[in-house]
């Protein structure tokens, strides 16, 4: 197995570095496009780990520096919240 096949970039959605490189080579060259085709950044952490890694890999492979890449939208809520907690019926704690 190649090294990039067991390197996980998005740990919520199991995107490997090998798959990411393949997607960039196929023409998905922005974070938004990669997110939508691979689900990277759509899991419980909402891209906190993978965003920066994907942007860096896009920069490496396409030559477009991170500062020139279109930024992907940050969406609320900023961390997962139970529907019951939104209603005020349950405390919001990480282990609840």
């Amino acid at each position: 197995m190649r090294n990039d096949e067991n390197t996980i970039i998005c740990r919520c959605e199991d995107l490997t570095l090998a798959r990411l490189r393949q997607l960039i080579a196929e023409g998905y060259t922005t974070l938004d496009e990669i997110k939508r085709i691979s689900r990277a950044g759509m899991g419980p952490c909402q891209g906190r780990t993978c965003r920066a890694l994907i942007e860096r890999e896009i920069a490496n492979l396409t030559g477009t520096p991170i500062k020139d890449q279109p930024p992907a939208k940050y969406r609320q809520p900023c961390q997962p919240v139970k529907l019951a907690a939104i209603l005020g019926g349950e405390p919001h704690a990480k282990d609840s």
Binding site: M42, G43, P44, Q46, K73, R75, Q76, P77, P80, V81, K82, L83, A84, I86, L87, G89, E90
Partner: peptide
């Protein structure tokens, strides 16, 4: 996306499909 939507959805969906109250919302758009 708005917070008002989140509130209204939480009210309606937990009435209609009660066990969903235990699910965590990860994203709205």
């Amino acid at each position: 996306a708005s917070w008002q939507f989140l509130q209204e959805m939480a009210e309606k969906i937990t009435w209609l499909l009660p066990p969903l109250r235990h699910l965590r919302v990860v994203r709205q758009w």
